[in-house]
Amino acid sequence: MTKDDFWQGVRGGFPVMVSAAPFGALFGALAVDNGFSVFDAVFMSATVYAGASQMVGLELFGHNVQPWLIVLSIFAVNFRHILYSASIARHIRHFSGLQKFFAFFLLVDPQYAETEKRAERGEPVTFAWYLGFGMIIYLPWQIMTLLGAIFGQMIGDPKAIGLDVLLPIYFMGLVLGFRKRDNWLPVVAVSSLASIAAMHVVGSPWHVSIGAIAGILLAACMPLSKRHEEPVTLEHEV
């Protein structure tokens, strides 16, 4: 039964792994391009294990942003996980303490979405299933980071093969992924303009925090919507 659950999880996570794999390789290649060693890239994938925030981290590190601001930005990008862990608490109440520790460590967007769906269908959310689903995404994420980083080391000029355009487009895709949220357009507009203005007036890296705070304050001051929002999930994201 436990073994069946594990393999059911592995099968369920397989398509997620396939769609996340290119991003793992992309992270590895861009990390090396931003001054990381191959070890650093895999170390980050293995310990942080949150694709979008890893990209944000290496972008900021490449710009010599202060360490506390890098950590804070990664924290901010991953903040949505708080909603996930609050939401799946009721489904994993029966896990032991150690099992919960691993469960929360592996809690990436698709893991959250699938756990919710499984509970909604009335199927048991067992630790074996959860671990199977998590491992088929976690382990290949490390392997793809390693391959991307090794490949990235062999690249001479990143501009010649168009690597420099990938990060901004990747971030733009993430921004678009949140477009169903309340106040999305005003927040994006205000944060964009504030960051551009701050870039010229105060300079990098402060444009990140100033732009972000402008958008967040705007959202806090906008009229509240009636409907309660579900956290938005990004389909590919680790």
């Binding site: 930005s73 901010a76 903040f79 927040v187 444009h207 958008g215 806090a220």
Partner: peptide, 20 residues
């Protein structure tokens, strides 16, 4: 509402300056 806006706000600051 503020927490909901965090990802779009942070990520926009990485997109807009790169565009310019």
């Amino acid at each position: 509402a503020a927490l909901n806006a965090v990802p779009a706000a942070v990520l926009s600051t990485l997109v807009a300056p790169a565009f310019l």
